[in-house]
Amino acid sequence: MNNSTNALLELNDPLEHISNQHPCFGKGPNLNKGRIHLPVSPSCNIQCAFCNRTRNKEERRPGVTSEILTPVEATEILDKALELCPEITVAGIAGPGDTLASDYAIETFKLIKEKHPELINCLSTNGLLLEKRAEELIEAGVKTVTVTVNAVDPEVLKHICLWIVKDGITYTGVEGARILIDAQLRGIKKIKELGAMVKVNTVLCPGINDDHIEEVAKTVSELGADYMNIIPLIPTHKLAHLKEPDCMMLHEARTKAEKYIRVFKHCQRCRADAAGIPGKVEIADQLYDLKKLNARNTFSHG
C-alpha cells in the first residue's frame, strides 16, 4: 500500500489516522512513534485495591512518578522531550492520580493545544467525572481517551474498587461500585458522541474479574469504544496476595474480548512520567532531576 493510499485511508477513517500516530491505540511496537506522560494529577477520587501511587525512580508501573509538575512545568518538559525525541506524537496525562479529579490536566492540555497543535492530546481516567467534563476535554484539544473499566457488575467491582468520593460523599461496597460503573458507561457514550477515540483498560485480576472480561468487552463495545486493553495485574497493595495472570489466562481473556472489540496487545504498563518510544527508547531520566527526589514519598489518597 503506497503513501497516497495510506493518506486517503487516514482521511476517511479517523481511527486509522490515530492508529498510525498513537503507539497505544493501534500498531504497538510496529509503530515508531513516541509518547510522553505528563504527571500533573496528584490526587484521586477512587481507591482501587491494586493501586499504590508513589514517587520513586525504580518501579515501572502506572501510578508511579518521579515528581508532580504544574501545567506550565509540564509544557516546559514537553518542549525538552520533543528536542530529545522528535518521534513523540502524543502528549498524554495518566496520573499518577485521576486526571479529572483536579483541573490540572485540562489546564495543561489547553497550553499544549496552543503551543503544539500537531500533537495528539490523550487522557486516561477512571471515568467517574468523564461525562461531567467531556465538553471541557474536547475544547482543550483531547482526541483520545482511555477509561479504566474493571467490571460492569457491581458485585465484581466491589472487590477491585474499595471506595469512591463523589460530591464530597464517600461510597463503598456495591453502592460505590454501581455509581462508578454508571458514571463510566455514561462518560464513554458521551465522549464518543463528541468525537474522541476511546480505549478501555481493564486490569485482569485472577479470581476476581477473569471470568467477567467478555461482559466488559461486550458492554463497552456497544457504547462505541474503539479498543480494549487487558492489562495483567501487578500484585500490590490490597491485592499483593494474588498471582500475576499467566500468558494463558491473558490469551483467553483477549480471545473472548476480541469477539466484540479490537484488542490492543502491546501495553508496556508505563509510569505516569514515561517518555519516549514505548519498548524502544525511554528518555524520562533525561527530563527530571531524580537525585533530588525522595524515593518513597507516597501520595495522599485524597
Rank of each mutant, 00 (worst) to 15 (best):
L162H: 09
L162D: 07
V149L: 06
G127Q: 02
N121M: 15
D211K: 15
N121G: 14
E136I: 01
L119E: 05
L123M: 07
I164F: 03
A101D: 01
G97H: 10
I208S: 04
C161L: 10
A105G: 04
K192V: 02
D211E: 15
L130T: 02
E135W: 03
G97T: 03
E214F: 07
I160G: 03
G97L: 11
T170K: 15
A101S: 13
A183T: 00
H159N: 15
L137E: 01
D182V: 02
G176N: 08
I169T: 15
K192I: 03
E193W: 02
D211A: 15
N201T: 13
I191R: 08
P206V: 15
N121T: 14
K189H: 11
E118V: 02
C122L: 09
T108G: 07
C205A: 13
A177L: 07
F109L: 01
I120Y: 06
Y171R: 12
E118F: 06
E214K: 11
E155I: 12
L185K: 13
G141A: 05
V216C: 06
E214H: 04
R178A: 10
L204N: 07
H159E: 15
S124K: 00
G173W: 03
D182K: 10
K158G: 08
P117C: 02
H116N: 08
K189S: 11
V174E: 04
R133E: 01
G127P: 10
L137R: 04
S124Q: 08
V165A: 07
N126A: 06
V142F: 05
P206L: 14
I213F: 08
Q184C: 09
D153F: 07
D182P: 06
I138L: 10
E175Q: 13
N126G: 14
T99E: 07
D98L: 10
I106Y: 10
T170C: 12
E175T: 11
K113F: 02
V174W: 02
E155R: 14
G173D: 00
K192R: 05
